[in-house]
């Protein structure tokens, strides 16, 4: 177990999340069970901003829910992050339809605007960039999604504009 990190990380919020759920289960004469996993992960991510591994290990130890089960769920749902994540999530498509209509250039523009690579987060923790195989909106290709809002028929310039505007709003 990585004990250094564990010391730096405050487990208290996690403890209170688990205790709350344990309490409600106890009221039904039950223990924490598998169905509680997703709500637990959501709560943990809400307080920590992501899912710190020491917290997950602790939760597993405490609840008996295995880390393998957690990991399966975490990697299946796009909503969960194992690393500190930006306030805004920018997802760009690298699927075939988008690619042939210049998606690659859009991605490059986003990268240079934010100064980060795929899978990274900006130093001010404002933006994270992810590229995705297909965003399921090929008719609108190339596609970029910011915090759940779809932007279709992207050009590098438009992408830059959208992001710059967000930066201004944050400032």
């Amino acid at each position: 177990m990585p004990d250094v990190q564990e010391n730096e990380l405050d487990l208290k919020p996690a403890v209170s999340i688990i205790e709350k759920i344990e309490q409600s289960r106890r009221a039904e004469n039950e223990r924490i069970r598998g169905d509680d996993l997703i709500p637990i992960l959501q709560e943990v991510q809400k307080v920590y901003g992501y899912l710190p591994i020491p917290v997950l290990s602790w939760v597993s130890e405490r609840t008996g829910i295995s880390t393998s089960r957690m990991y399966g769920v975490i990697t299946f749902y796009a909503q969960f992050y194992l690393e500190p994540h930006g306030k805004h999530t920018v997802r760009c498509c690298r699927g075939t339809a988008c690619y042939v209509r210049g998606g690659r250039r859009v991605i490059n523009a986003v990268k240079s605007t934010l100064g980060i690579d795929d899978g990274e987060t900006t130093g001010d923790m404002l933006f994270s960039l992810e590229t995705v195989a297909c965003l399921g909106a090929c008719a609108l290709s190339p596609v970029m999604v910011v915090d759940g809002t779809y932007y279709g028929k992207m050009t590098p310039r438009r992408a830059e504009q959208i992001l710059k505007q967000l930066v201004e709003e944050e400032a």
Partner: peptide
């Protein structure tokens, strides 16, 4: 032992351990 899981989703799925630790470090 619950050491294993599938990770990822469509098109990019593999078997691994919880949090992708080495088998020896897993349960």
């Amino acid at each position: 032992a619950e050491a294993l899981t599938l990770k990822g989703r469509s098109g990019d799925v593999q078997v691994t351990t919880g949090l992708e630790v080495e088998l020896k470090e897993s349960p």
